[in-house]
Simulated scan of single mutants.
Amino acid sequence: MTRLPARLWRLALFALLLTFLIRPGLFAPLLQPLTRNGAPAIYDKGDLLSLTLSHLKITGLATLAAALLAVSMAIFVTRRAGADFLPLSRSIVNVGQTFPPVAVLALAVPAIGFGEAPTLVALFLYGLLPIFETTIAGLTGVSGPVLEAARGVGMTPWQRLLRVELPLALPLVVAGVRLSAVIGLGTATIGSTVGARTLGEVVIAGLLSDNLAFVVQGGAIVGALAILLHDALSWLETRLARVI
């Protein structure tokens, strides 16, 4: 039996996901056996496409903010002037991994209220470590002869950073962003517990109403998004590695 190429599987998954988000009613017969007492099979308290876009927006904003700070910190501590701050920087980025996102939400809500803001804070803190560590690995992994050659042609430290070190480290930076984004995508579901519009809203509604169909569709959408996002960033990482 011939196996379909991975690219075709991804395209099929994307098409299936898009169809479900635009025309979820088509899948009602498939999910109906998971309901009880005539409950709706498709989530009917909000638009699934709108929730998905909001979920992606929150994840994207948090990942972008985490990337900007983590890369900046990694650059600083890999310079001679900032080397002494490496232990402190590691302690800072480890905060997000030390405290579970639920705990961060619990602490953030009294300070900044309900909605997207506490969710963004939790995802931001949770996403720092992977990007920080992979960026450090990429910057410190640039070979000595390459740096010496850059010095030999008269490049300044900033020119070496921007033209040599960061481009060579870019595949590892993208790897860190991929880890952070996929983790954030799954973790963002808990944002609905504090009023953020995420796909966690569908899962929570299913749990509260004992409707397994809601739980399955919410989890399936997040899972499909995570697979597609992981594959897209993995492809970008591979392409960058080949070019560089």
Rank of each mutant, 00 (worst) to 15 (best):
R3H: 02
L4T: 05
P5I: 04
P5A: 03
W9Q: 05
W9L: 11
R10Y: 13
L11Y: 07
L16T: 14
T19S: 11
T19M: 10
L21H: 03
I22C: 13
R23H: 08
P24N: 08
L26P: 09
L26N: 06
F27P: 05
F27Y: 13
A28F: 11
P29Y: 07
L30T: 14
L31H: 06
L34D: 07
T35V: 12
R36L: 12
G38V: 11
A39H: 01
A39C: 01
P40R: 09
I42T: 10
K45R: 13
G46F: 03
D47Q: 15
L48F: 07
L51N: 01
T52C: 12
S54L: 00
L56S: 08
I58F: 10
I58Q: 14
T59D: 11
T59A: 15
G60S: 10
G60R: 08
L64V: 15
V71H: 02
M73A: 13
M73K: 01
A74Y: 03
I75N: 04
R80M: 02
A81K: 11
G82T: 02
G82L: 04
G82C: 01
F85V: 13
F85Q: 06
F85E: 02
P87M: 09
P87H: 07
S91T: 14
S91A: 15
S91L: 15
S91E: 06
S91C: 10
I92V: 15
G96F: 12
G96D: 14
G96Q: 11
F99H: 03
P100H: 02
P101T: 00
A103F: 13
A103V: 15
L105A: 05
L105K: 05
L107A: 07
A108F: 05
A111C: 04
I112W: 09
G115H: 01
A117H: 03
L120F: 03
V121Q: 00
A122E: 05
L123E: 00
L123M: 01
F124R: 07
G127D: 08
L128I: 14
L129Q: 11
F132A: 08
I136S: 09
A137G: 05
L139K: 08
T140I: 02
G141R: 13
S143P: 02
S143T: 10
G144K: 12
G144Y: 06
L147G: 07
A149S: 13
A150T: 08
R151S: 12
V153F: 09
G154M: 09
T156D: 06
W158E: 11
L161I: 03
L161N: 07
R163W: 11
V164M: 03
A169F: 09
A169Y: 10
L170R: 14
P171A: 05
L172S: 00
L172V: 00
A175Q: 11
A175C: 10
G176T: 06
R178E: 10
S180C: 14
V182Y: 12
G184T: 00
G184V: 00
L185M: 15
T187A: 13
A188I: 08
S192Q: 08
S192A: 15
S192W: 01
T193L: 11
T193E: 05
V194D: 04
V194C: 02
E201L: 07
V202H: 04
A205I: 13
A205S: 15
L207K: 11
N211H: 03
F214C: 06
G219Q: 01
I221D: 02
I221Y: 00
A224N: 04
L228V: 03
A232C: 10
A232Q: 09
L236F: 05
R239L: 10
R239F: 08
R239W: 10
R242A: 12
V243G: 02
I244G: 13
